[in-house]
Design a protein around this nucleic acid. Structure first.
Lengths: 217, 217
DNA sequence: ATGTGTATAAAACATTTGTTTAAATGTCAA
DNA sequence: TTGACATTTAAACAAATGTTTTATACACAT
């Protein structure tokens, strides 16, 4: 097949299956034979299309992960509407909804957060790209949105720490599902996720005081 | 050397070096040759003392990680003092201090959280043990401490979610250091950690509202 | 000193794994 | 149909890796 006809079926299948496997098991634990087997193609296809296993991994971040992150940010922005300035409550609600329900399927969301969690635990070139091109700009936007509502003596750095803490929670409940379901002792189903969103919004806005007795606050 | 004399030097050295390497690079990315080289012993020593690489990994959790987790919990409890009941503020302060300063060295703390983060992303037998023997009992204790201060309509499950969110933040700032320092654009030094503790306490207690303008709360 | 069990050492082994090669197959334009 | 190029396939390769084996060194009770 010629390039013109763009039969990328094989290449696409490899990207799809490899992403699933890397998310599930991590880079080192996945071998090319199981990728090509899952993608129903020959062993040599990975090196033929991507040059190396390492580069396939990076390509997944370049072509798949980044696109999805962009989708998430677009979804977040459009779900905020055009009313500006937005209250912190609205922003947090939109964030929690976007990253726990939102445009991604359950499997996609899980994959997305598994991959980024692995990168954060053990950074490769991919992390630098993600931080520079996606995370930093997004945090900048969020900072600008939140800043008008913040107390004067809150520094930019403190604001960023607040944003990171929200993401830390979202990340945790997405990538540590096994631990969460085992500790909470209930399945990670749609009903639980609804409770989770409610919790994350409440905790991000008010912390423990959001659950405390009125007279103690 | 006989068993009586307990020359565990080699075995101990292997445990020490292997833990460092597993924390840094993950199970699959560490090979026995680099462990035994770091521990200054023969290649066969791992299989001689531990039977297999897998079992060495599990032994690290059994003998090292669990002991350290216990140390942390003891430190937390003793830093709370015997005054009971404790306010949520006191509890959160003691938690943040214990897990970000506290009894562990910087390297130990980093290792500790790297290992548990990896287990949560990709559970092995170790995670079940950790959850059953350490995390669940600790969460139970914290729940009992916090419950008296909670609003009547807060369920036990919601309380656990609150506790997990606090740990999610602590975990994140400990295991994702590279990402954090890159985003914040400052080194992960003692000064930063002091700010971090302050932030975690404030965010865990009051969320974003702890940084908002008074008139907007 | 001798024998017994422990510990260390070096080498060998069998798999696994990423990559390369070379041949075969397929596609399409001229 | 033919030639040129893209794709697929099977086989081979070299390096890495967990484990086992066999021999040697060591410590200590008898």
């Amino acid at each position: 097949m010629t390039k013109d006809h763009e039969n990328e079926l094989t290449k696409e299948r490899i990207l799809n299956e490899a992403e699933i496997l890397f998310a599930q098991k991590g880079y080192k634990s996945v071998n090319i034979r199981e990728i090509t087997k899952a993608a129903n193609c020959n062993l040599a296809a990975v090196n033929y299309y991507f040059g190396s296993k390492k580069n396939l991994y990076l390509d997944i971040f370049r072509s798949r992960w980044m696109a999805r992150a962009k989708r998430l940010q677009e979804f977040f922005k459009s779900s905020l509407g055009s009313i500006s300035p937005n209250s912190p409550a609205k922003i947090v609600e939109a964030l929690a909804y976007t990253f726990l329900k939102g445009p991604l399927s359950e499997e996609e969301r899980h994959r997305h957060h598994q991959l980024i969690a692995r990168e954060m635990a053990q950074p490769t070139e991919a992390l630098e790209m993600i931080i520079d091109q996606m995370i930093k700009p997004f945090i900048k936007e969020l900072s600008d949105m939140l800043l008008p509502s913040m107390s004067k003596d809150v520094t930019k750095e403190e604001l960023i720490l607040n944003i990171l803490s929200m993401f830390a929670i979202v990340l945790y409940f997405n990538f540590a599902r096994k631990a969460v379901t085992s500790i909470i002792n209930r399945p990670y189903d749609s009903e639980f996720k609804t409770k989770l969103i409610e919790h994350i919004i409440n905790f991000s806005l008010y912390g423990l005081s959001g659950s405390q007795k009125e007279e103690l606050k």
